[in-house]
Write a protein that binds this DNA or RNA. Structure first.
Lengths: 207, 207
DNA sequence: GCCATCATGTAATCTGTTACATGATTAT
DNA sequence: ATAATCATGTAACAGATTACATGATGGC
């Protein structure tokens, strides 16, 4: 039904104050980078259409030595459209999860390969969690008593909860996988390239 | 660096046995739908290139009354390419999380609107968790002692962990939000359209 | 001299979904 | 009758990234 999330993402940034396309990219990188991003190829054409639709106005600042700054300001209509989107319930879409896909076909490689994969994933999550904790601390200091601080913290908390859960999942999956290496049973024992390919013959109905 | 996950997804399905493009879609829907999907517009052209690259071979089965079935079989080269991808560490990409984006701009609407948003999200997660538990039970019965059952269960567990964490986050966020309704402080109290828009003047440096 | 930053934008490319075209069979 | 399933595929569109073009300033 409703399309173009990028449009609303930009409307949201514009609601924070007058800003240029160049700076919009920076704001994305510095604030919502954990769960959202936009490229210039999206931003600049979209700003044009926002103006065409009467959701924003544009004014040009002359600068010495530097290129002109094209500054955009949200209109009332634009602000209302943003609000309308904000209260609309999110439609959940199935994201593509690469590690899950790889693990789904995990029996095509050695158990040790899967262990390595999950270990690497866990390390990345560990780093991510540390980063999210650092962001939380930074926000509390830099945005102290700003009205949107609570909302910023909620989004950081979202990331922390998910990342923490993934680390937990890694631990459980790793202990499960190491049990598989310890006592491999029929179909896993003596895993060779030839044996693995041999699965193909009896697999059409394994879906 | 490495591109086209769809290609490996299809190679993975092919590793389960000879199959047609039509059935590949079904297998996606019936097995990995929670974290992956492919459309015909991806599958059919990709099968053609897989054959061109020598990663699969094609043979046509004539059927009475029904259209021909084009059946694809993985080659050794294709199997090796799949294995190579499976052991490669996943590169993590920042997915777009709509509810986080909406909440990030939550101070642009009423606290009650954000509460409604999170409540709806929690209900969806609740349903999702129930579905994942049902899938787990179904897999344990239908795929009992199949060699890839453990790997299937790991992917289901992934979803369960994340979904459970999101429900937890919803609870915490909701209690936080209701505290905000109880005692709204400066900048939140007396929220009117005019006051909200007024934020714009001091917001360029709030990034 | 060279690279990064400022600042705009476009074009090419990639990835993915949706809708359509075809046409027979089977179930309601 | 009509809808769904079987089965292939393409074309049109949508969404997004990357690389490029332009050109000045300022730091190493």
């Amino acid at each position: 039904m409703k399309e173009n999330k990028s449009k609303y993402a930009i409307l949201g940034i514009l609601s924070l104050g007058p800003i240029s396309g160049y700076d919009i990219k920076k704001v994305f990188q510095r604030s919502v980078a954990n769960f959202w991003s936009e490229s210039y190829g999206q931003i600049y054409p979209l700003l044009r259409t926002l103006v065409a639709e009467g959701l924003a106005t544009k004014s040009i600042e002359k600068q010495v030595g530097k290129p002109d700054r094209h500054t955009y300001v949200l209109t009332n209509k634009g602000f209302e459209e943003l609000q309308q989107w904000l209260i609309e319930p999110v439609q959940d879409q199935i994201g593509r999860i690469e590690i899950a896909l790889k693990l789904f076909f995990g029996h095509r490689v050695k158990v040790a390969d899967n262990i390595r994969q999950v270990e690497h994933f866990r390390e990345m999550r560990g780093q991510e969690l540390q980063a999210l904790i650092a962001i939380e601390e930074r926000l509390k200091v830099e945005h102290a008593n700003k009205p949107n601080l609570p909302y910023m913290l909620m989004t950081v908390s979202y990331g922390q909860h998910v990342t923490q859960a993934l680390i937990q999942w890694c631990e459980e999956t790793l202990s499960f996988l190491s049990k598989m290496t310890a006592k491999p049973k029929k179909g896993i024992k003596g895993l060779t390239k030839k044996n693995v390919r041999g699965d193909k013959r009896r697999s059409r109905q394994s879906q």
